[in-house]
């Protein structure tokens, strides 16, 4: 029982770590960014390249993954995304799907279609004893990361000037602009930051998921579930949703393996029917 809950939390944190960036770009900035998985993939490949080609350690590689995804995100924001902030959501869908197609082809070209080798550092392999449970070290690490990122984001958004500006700009762009906030630059930074988070999540997922070029599309549904069930545009929402989804999925597969494939979707549909705007609709962040 205990270990199942633990694994569920760890899996949930994995989903949260990748999806939280989507909550920033899609939720806060209301851009239907289906290319989110592609940014996570960029982070994953950046980390793998840093480790396998340049011999960096895992932790510096995590930094590299954030930087790489944020850079690419920034460039694309400047060249493409910027022009579509006020376009119809369906145009945004078309653009981001186009980007996904390009990214899949590009990564297949440079890295080949098979999965990338990844071995976590010695300190994160195997399992250890925690409160009477034999828990996987890597999973414990994911949980720690999840809480750290949650705390960091809440702090930045609620306690800093930057966070206040973002909240203002998201609520009412016009008024925010009137008060002298440079909205365009702010959105540029926020978008790049969201992509960076995706990249970091992608790198952290290496210990559990296999990284290959179709990563960009394969897990997209799970990220969308977390963001939408949680309530787009919040940070706490996706966190809670990720925990629930993770626990429901792992516990379901453990106790009711016959229904393993169905549970997570049933859970999503029911939650959304009961709470159409997500568990924690956007009001306070």
């Amino acid at each position: 029982m205990g270990i199942v809950i633990f694994d569920g939390i760890a899996y949930g944190m994995l989903l949260f770590l990748i999806a939280v960036g989507l909550s920033v770009t899609m939720g806060l900035m209301s851009f239907v960014n289906l290319a989110h998985g592609a940014f996570a993939m960029i982070g994953g490949y950046a980390a793998v390249t840093a480790m396998n080609q340049f011999g960096l350690g895992f932790f510096p590689a995590l930094v590299a993954s954030f930087v790489a995804a944020a850079l690419v995100g920034g460039v694309l924001e400047f060249t493409l995304y910027r022009r579509l902030y006020r376009a119809h959501p369906l145009d945004q869908v078309l653009l981001s799907i186009g980007l996904v197609f390009v990214s899949v082809a590009v990564f297949t070209y440079f890295f080949g279609p098979t999965i990338q080798a990844f071995s976590p550092p010695e300190s994160l392999t195997g399992s250890m004893s925690l409160m009477g449970l034999e828990v996987g070290r890597y999973r414990l690490f994911l949980i720690v990361c999840g809480f750290a990122i949650l705390a960091g984001l809440l702090l930045v958004l609620n306690r800093t000037r930057y966070g206040a500006m973002v909240r203002a700009a998201v609520d009412n762009q016009r008024v925010a602009r009137g008060t002298g906030i440079h909205v365009q630059r702010l959105f540029f930074l926020t978008f790049a930051f969201g992509c960076g988070l995706a990249g970091l999540g992608g790198a952290l997922s290496l210990g559990i998921l296999g990284l290959e070029p179709s990563f960009a599309l394969k897990y997209l549904i799970f990220f969308l579930i977390v963001v939408c069930v949680g309530g787009a545009g919040t940070i706490i929402g996706p966190f809670v949703a990720a925990l629930l989804v993770g626990i429901v999925d792992v516990a379901g597969k453990y106790y009711l393996p016959e229904l393993g494939a169905f549970l997570i979707y049933v859970f999503m549909v029911i939650t959304l029917l009961v709470r159409p705007n997500g568990l924690i609709p956007r009001k306070g962040l």
């Binding site: 270990i3 199942v4 694994d7 760890a10 899996y11 994995l14 996987g136 999973r139 559990i208 998921l209 394969k218 897990y219 799970f222 999925d249 792992v250 516990a251 379901g252 597969k253 453990y254 393996p257 393993g260 494939a261």
Partner: peptide, 12 residues
């Protein structure tokens, strides 16, 4: 077929 995490099955 689309199963990101095998921990539940292995634990079982």
């Amino acid at each position: 077929m689309n199963n990101p995490d095998f921990s539940a099955y292995v634990q079982r």
